[in-house]
């Protein structure tokens, strides 16, 4: 029974990590879609921004499961400090450190967005630029950890996620003017 629960924790940690990566990719793409003022079909434009927000919270939930199982699993040997402080883990310090860095950036993004009304716009935007760092760190963490790194199924997921992010980055920087210039200016009396 103990061995079963240990294996279940180990499998849940790996599975939730992969799903969190896919969700973070979706959040990344939706963020750029929001910036480009894209909308799904004839839906109101606010749908894209709302989906970006809600799916990012969903990704954080799966990230939470991934972290809790990593700490709880006796085989992973990740202590609580190594979750947030990069490169201090005893085992696979570099790989776990990449994940910790990514988590720190994601936490900054989420907290600054939840407190957006109280955070200056310039600071919020500056923190949001860190998303371009968080996603590659998460991907590198996935492939540096090693358990499933050489598995064709994880490689396929990684390639699809990378392609989605690459296309959206090209969309963001490769075409036309940014959405910032398209936003309606406040009406002055």
């Amino acid at each position: 029974m103990s061995a079963f629960s240990s294996n279940a924790t180990w499998h849940l940690m790996r599975a939730s990590g992969v799903v969190a990566l896919v969700l973070l990719t979706a959040v990344f793409v939706l963020g750029i879609a929001t910036n480009r003022r894209w909308r799904p079909g004839r839906a109101p434009r606010v749908v894209t921004a709302s989906l970006h927000r809600t799916i990012s919270l969903l990704a954080v939930a799966f990230l939470g499961v991934h972290i809790l199982t990593a700490v709880a699993d006796p085989y992973a040997v990740v202590d609580a400090a190594a979750v947030v402080v990069p490169f201090v883990a005893g085992k696979s310090a570099f790989a776990v450190g990449l994940g910790a860095l990514s988590l720190d950036v994601v936490a900054a993004l989420v907290v600054s967005s939840l407190l957006r009304a109280r955070v200056p716009a310039a600071l919020w935007r500056a923190i949001h630029w860190l998303a371009y760092l968080a996603w590659p760190l998460a991907l590198a963490h996935s492939f540096a950890t090693g358990t499933d790194a050489a598995s064709p199924w994880l490689e396929s997921i990684g390639v699809v996620c990378f392609a989605a992010v690459a296309v959206s980055v090209l969309w963001r920087f490769g075409t036309g003017r940014s959405a910032k210039h398209l936003e309606p200016r406040p009406v002055t009396a």
Partner: peptide, 29 residues
């Protein structure tokens, strides 16, 4: 309309993510 769409889409993604996690756990097992 937007709220309804977002709620439905988020639920779908959440259920799909949970199902995918369960599937991967089972498969790894």
């Amino acid at each position: 309309i937007a709220d309804r769409l977002v709620r439905r889409a988020t639920c779908t993604v959440g259920v799909a993510a949970a199902a995918a996690t369960a599937l991967i756990v089972g498969w790894l097992g």
